[in-house]
Simulated scan of single mutants.
Amino acid sequence: MIKEWNLLRFIACLSIVFLHSTTQSARVLGYPSEEIYQFFRILLCYATPAFIVLSVIILANRYPDKLPEKFWVNRIKWIYLPFLFFAILDAIVGKYFNPNLLIGQKIIDNIITGKFVGWFIIVIFQFYFLHYLIIRYKLSLKWLFPISLIIMFGYSNYALENPIAMEGYSHLLKLPFLGWFGYFTVAFLIGKHYKKVSHFLFKYRWLTLVGFAVSILYLYASFKSGNLEVNSRRLDLFPVVISFSSVVIAWGQLLPRFAFVNLVSTYSFGIYLIHWQVLRFLAPYTANYFAHPFAHVLALFFITLLICLVIIKLITLIPYGDFIVGKVKKKPVKEAEIKKWPSVA
């Protein structure tokens, strides 16, 4: 795996766990009143779109012209089956915390409308199909790219500005690929022309930092204007996601491979699916030892990450464990073998 991809996946994975640590901490201790804390939570929402972008980059880079045999079978086994497993587990855990929960309806909602942390997998499968259509019919990104931006911003603006029309259909804000279309086309272009793009970004790596800084200032201006929503669907996150990904691609080429980065990157899919449940059980207990919100968030983050790593390692040791946490590399393999494995970034 290209090392800057591992680095981007590593940072995005930790960002998601940290963001959700603040969410679960708030449920037992409340949110700190500091403005910068609230803005930082919004900034961390870049992580899920970054996962989606990386997934498309890898897909376009590996399969720019043709999908391999068993492409769909492998993704059903190692991506969709874990999605189903955790959709059911989320309902069971929800029933534990809320005895009045209708577990059957919750399972259906999780699977169909993505009402749990695994919802992004539904988006990624739509992107798999879009990728297939582009390479099957040789669609030109010259016209698809600008159209995708128009569609994404138009759809998202309508959905966000007409809450009454979307009442009862909140899943339509995040699940249809229309709301993520621009991310897909940008990532597809990066992946298909990765050598040229990565060389260009490396050459102008200092400018990537400038672009990232400007995108954060834009997000902060939006925050100060009253846009306080903490979710990954914010359109003002689009430049943050693309610029941050550019920073990691550019500067990640200078860094050596770190064992811990590779470990978390390899386990990232499982961490993404497991961490929310660990946080739900852990937060009330850690609050007994860390009463200050900042200390509690940090403790919750590190302990949750450690527990997730241990759980995933144990699951990979049992038969068919890959169907629960996805395909996990158990020993060093050649790059050609890695390419056979599906990835959701």
Results as ranks from 00 to 15, higher is better:
217 L>H: 09
188 F>H: 03
143 W>F: 05
211 G>V: 09
70 K>T: 12
208 T>Q: 06
39 F>E: 01
142 K>V: 06
6 N>E: 13
46 Y>Q: 02
256 P>M: 10
109 D>H: 09
276 W>A: 15
117 V>I: 03
339 K>Y: 12
327 K>A: 06
119 W>E: 09
189 L>V: 07
229 E>P: 11
37 Y>H: 03
123 V>G: 04
96 Y>D: 12
199 H>M: 11
144 L>M: 11
334 K>E: 12
49 P>C: 07
236 D>Q: 06
142 K>A: 00
220 Y>D: 08
12 A>C: 03
42 I>E: 00
168 G>P: 06
186 V>C: 02
68 P>T: 14
323 F>S: 14
302 F>A: 09
185 T>E: 03
118 G>Q: 05
193 H>E: 05
216 I>F: 12
305 L>K: 11
124 I>Y: 01
200 F>S: 06
271 I>V: 11
24 Q>Y: 11
240 V>I: 03
122 I>L: 06
324 I>Y: 06
92 I>V: 08
213 A>K: 13
50 A>L: 00
197 V>F: 01
284 P>W: 08
161 E>S: 07
145 F>K: 11
279 L>R: 12
213 A>L: 14
3 K>I: 09
280 R>K: 13
52 I>R: 04
338 I>R: 05
336 A>H: 15
61 N>W: 12
127 F>P: 03
139 L>M: 03
207 L>I: 08
82 P>K: 00
189 L>Y: 03
126 Q>E: 05
284 P>K: 05
133 L>N: 14
312 I>K: 07
10 F>R: 03
147 I>Q: 08
28 V>Y: 12
100 N>F: 15
134 I>H: 02
309 L>N: 12
238 F>H: 04
1 M>G: 13
343 S>F: 02
218 Y>W: 09
26 A>I: 12
216 I>S: 01
